[in-house]
Simulated scan of single mutants.
Amino acid sequence: MTDGGAGDGTAIGLTELQLDAFTELVNIGVSRAAASLRQMIGTQVLLSVPSVEIVSRDAAARLIGEREAAPLVVVHQDFAGAFAGRALLIFPQENGRELVRAVAGEELSLEEVADLEDEALAETGNIILNGCLATMANMLQRTLTMSLPGIARGDGPQIFGMHAGGAAGADALVLFLYIDFSVSERDIRGYLAMLMDLPSLENLRLLVDEFIARALGDLDA
Results as ranks from 00 to 15, higher is better:
207 L>E: 10
180 D>E: 13
202 E>I: 06
160 F>N: 05
193 A>F: 01
183 V>N: 01
86 R>I: 07
201 L>M: 13
206 L>S: 11
11 A>R: 03
160 F>Q: 03
179 I>S: 12
7 G>V: 03
114 A>S: 15
85 G>Y: 13
179 I>W: 00
103 V>W: 07
92 P>K: 00
76 H>M: 08
175 L>D: 00
214 R>L: 14
217 G>S: 12
180 D>H: 07
130 N>Y: 03
207 L>F: 05
127 I>N: 02
189 R>H: 13
26 V>D: 10
192 L>D: 01
117 E>P: 08
28 I>D: 01
160 F>I: 06
72 L>C: 05
3 D>W: 13
28 I>W: 02
76 H>P: 00
76 H>C: 11
89 L>F: 13
168 A>M: 05
146 M>T: 05
95 N>R: 11
102 A>F: 03
76 H>R: 15
1 M>A: 06
173 L>R: 09
74 V>M: 14
55 V>W: 00
63 L>R: 11
204 L>H: 08
175 L>C: 03
63 L>H: 07
184 S>C: 05
195 L>T: 10
30 V>Q: 02
175 L>S: 04
69 A>K: 14
135 T>N: 14
191 Y>L: 02
157 P>Q: 07
139 M>P: 00
8 D>L: 04
208 V>K: 02
165 G>L: 06
13 G>N: 02
23 T>F: 03
196 M>L: 15
